[in-house]
Design a protein around this nucleic acid. Sequence first.
DNA 1: GACCAGGTCCTTG
DNA 2: CAAGGACATGGT
Length: 211
Amino acid sequence: MSASDSAKLRTLLSLLDERYGMLTWWPGTPEEIIIGAVLTQQTRWKNVERGINELHHQGLCRLSALASSPLCRIEEAVQCTGFFRMKARRLQNLSRVIMDRFGGVEGMVDRSLNDLRTTLLSIDGVGEETADSILCFALGRCSFIIDRYTERICACAGIGSKGGALKDLVESVVPHDLATYRQAHAHFVEYAKEWCGKKRCEECAIVRLRG
DNA sequence: GACCAGGTCCTTG
DNA sequence: CAAGGACATGGT
């Protein structure tokens, strides 16, 4: 993480903030956010909302319910989110681990960030992005989410760091404040939805920071 | 019909 | 360690 990477990132963050301002991002109860974090993997948010609604209709939108439900009922409810067999299995396992090990989401609040992150990452189907999404949006911890969009936008902006190094860089630049962490992540995704994939990232003035 | 979506895991070279 | 495939449905 070079000094110029920090400078570029600061500029990028402030441009995004200026452009998008306040966004309400990931609505829902902590349990809904945890469930959504799994369902949203490689899936459009619209379909995730449907899946969550369907879980509600089936009385399955709680970790305690997911932990004890027949797998086929979960599969049916989350079918519209794609990868549904895998996601149903992972949702059930994740729910069981949280119930067994912490006695529910409430039991996670007094654990250290490091303890929680390590535990989450050890669970099947919970990678870095999902773990950090749960930490930041469900559990209210300052753990910055590095998703593909964030990596892509930062790369477009000429920032060299990737993966864990990029996470360290962002966390060294963004103020350690929960609302700011959530906001900055929302800004990256919002920018990506507007630009990445349609026009090339490089064509947007916001991201022309390189050189 | 092709391509991608708010990833993760497993296998190969 | 990088790259490629599997997982699967729904929208453009």
